[in-house]
Amino acid sequence: MIGLIIAAFFAAIAGSLGLGGGGILLLYLTAFADYEQLKAQGINLIFFIPCAIIALIIHAKNKLIEWKATLVCGITGLAGVALGFYLAGLFDPKWLGKAFAVFLLFLGLKELFHREKDQKKP
C-alpha cells in the first residue's frame, strides 16, 4: 500500500509538470504491483479526475475554453470510451497489457525522435 501511495505521489508530481504522470502510475501498477491492465487504467482515471476538474475550472475562469469544441470532444470521447470498454472486454488482460506496452514504446520512440518542423523560416 505504501508503494502505491509513493507511486501516486510521483505520478501526480509528474502529471502536474506535464510529464505524463498517468503513464508512470500505469507502469507501476502493471509492472510492480501486479494489477491487471483494466484495473490499473481505472485507478489511473480516478487519480486523473480531480486534476482535470481543477484544470477545467482554471481554464474556464480565464476564458480559455471553446465550449462548442468541448461539447463535440466530450460526446465523441464518451462514445470512444464505450467502444473501448466493450473491445477491451473481448481481449485477454495479458494481451491487452502487452498491446499497451507496445503502444507506449512506439509513442515514446516517436516523441524521442520526432522533430517539429519550424513554421517560420528566416
Rank of each mutant, 00 (worst) to 15 (best):
I2M: 10
I2Y: 07
L4E: 08
I5R: 01
A8D: 01
F10Q: 04
A12I: 10
A14S: 05
S16R: 07
G18W: 00
L19F: 10
G20A: 05
G21S: 02
G22H: 05
G22V: 04
G23D: 01
L26V: 09
L26A: 11
L29N: 02
L29Q: 01
T30Q: 07
A31F: 05
F32N: 00
A33R: 08
A33I: 07
Q37S: 08
K39C: 04
K39H: 11
Q41Y: 02
L45I: 11
F48D: 09
C51D: 12
I53C: 02
H59N: 13
K61I: 14
K63C: 09
I65M: 03
E66Y: 15
E66V: 14
K68D: 13
A69L: 15
A69P: 05
T70R: 03
L71V: 15
V72D: 01
G74F: 07
G77Y: 04
L78Y: 03
L78V: 04
L87Q: 09
L87K: 06
F91V: 08
P93C: 00
L96A: 04
G97S: 05
G97Q: 08
F100T: 06
A101I: 07
V102S: 06
L105T: 12
L109P: 03
K110E: 12
K110A: 12
L112K: 12
D118C: 05
D118H: 12
Q119A: 15
K120I: 14
